[in-house]
Simulated scan of single mutants.
Amino acid sequence: MTTEATLADSLAVADRVRALMVRHGIGKRQQTTELCRILDLSFSQGHRKLRGSSPWTLAQIRKVAQAFGEPPTQLFAAQENGLGAAGAQPREATLNLGGFEGPCIAWIGAPLGRDERAEFVAYGEGERWRIVRCDGSPGEHAHEVQKIEIHPRRGEAQRATIAVVDADRAAAEALCDYLLQNGFEARAYDRLTAFTDALQTQTFDAIVTDWLFDGCTAAMAIESVRRSAQPDAPIFLLTGDLLTGKASESEISEVIRRFDVACYEKPARLAILVADLSKRLGRA
């Protein structure tokens, strides 16, 4: 008999756990640490739980709910919340109201028909929701909003966002986990094209990249960073191919000179790498 949470998939449970924590005053940057404390998990395990990439057991769901004094059904399925609609689900969202724009938890219901009306409506934007006041007919794909909670945020230092680019996906994610434990946000990319595409719409405070990718080098991607919206971002090149002769020492030397790149040989000493990263970002 399986003990996995069959009443809801991992992503849905993760959404509800994050919403529950926000309602109880746990900021986004403290949620992984709090979950690890409750379930006795490693930071990496807790991070995957909250991303929805690791399955939840019924016992874990119950334990989280009990820790906050709420019924486990709050995490299994959507609640009516006293608003007369069982389909509404709590979601992390951004509220746009006059000159105010900030995070909130919104109970989002079914899509609205052309002739239906609601005071507030929600629009899906990728994995996020945007909440606005509706003064007339709802736009296409508008969902009814039945409840909104706003929780004042404590002042928190903004985490620097680091792009980790490595053809070995497991290695990239392992480094991301280490960076997360040391106070950074981190995003993994295992293809140079995926990373350079991300540069078109995102900015990164620093980049950590491998050198060789399917016969290509990271030189063009590094040049793209220097032409991006954040051209001064520190770049760290990690490679284990100099000793094997697969990488050209002269090519790497040229990239270091032209684009102000720090170079570390693999396997990198992560504590030293993070210390250098923190210093360059003014966090030391």
Rank of each mutant, 00 (worst) to 15 (best):
L83G: 01
I148L: 14
T217M: 05
P111Y: 13
L20C: 05
A233W: 03
R227A: 10
T244N: 10
S248C: 05
E140H: 09
R117M: 09
P71M: 07
W129L: 13
L39D: 03
A271G: 08
H47V: 03
V164M: 03
E223L: 08
A174I: 10
A88E: 03
S44C: 00
K279M: 10
C104E: 01
G155D: 11
A122P: 09
W211C: 00
D190T: 04
G27E: 10
M220L: 10
K279F: 14
I207N: 03
E101S: 15
T209E: 01
E149D: 15
A163Q: 05
A67R: 10
A271N: 08
A106T: 11
E4F: 11
S228Y: 08
P152D: 12
I207R: 06
R16P: 05
A160F: 06
Q230M: 13
A118R: 14
Q31E: 02
L180A: 12
A229D: 12
T94M: 12
R62G: 12
E119T: 15
H24Q: 13
P111F: 11
L95F: 11
R91Q: 14
S10Q: 13
P231M: 07
S278Q: 15
E127V: 14
D210N: 09
V64D: 01
A284I: 02
R283G: 03
A78G: 12
G102A: 09
A233Y: 04
G46A: 02
A59S: 08
P103Y: 07
A122W: 12
G82L: 07
L238T: 04
F259I: 04
E185R: 11
I108W: 12
R62D: 14
T196A: 01
G139Y: 09
T3S: 13
A65G: 08
I252Q: 09
Y178A: 12
F184M: 08
G240N: 10
C36L: 00
A229W: 05
D205C: 06
R91M: 10
K147S: 05
R62W: 02
E70R: 15
A8S: 15
N81F: 04
H24F: 14
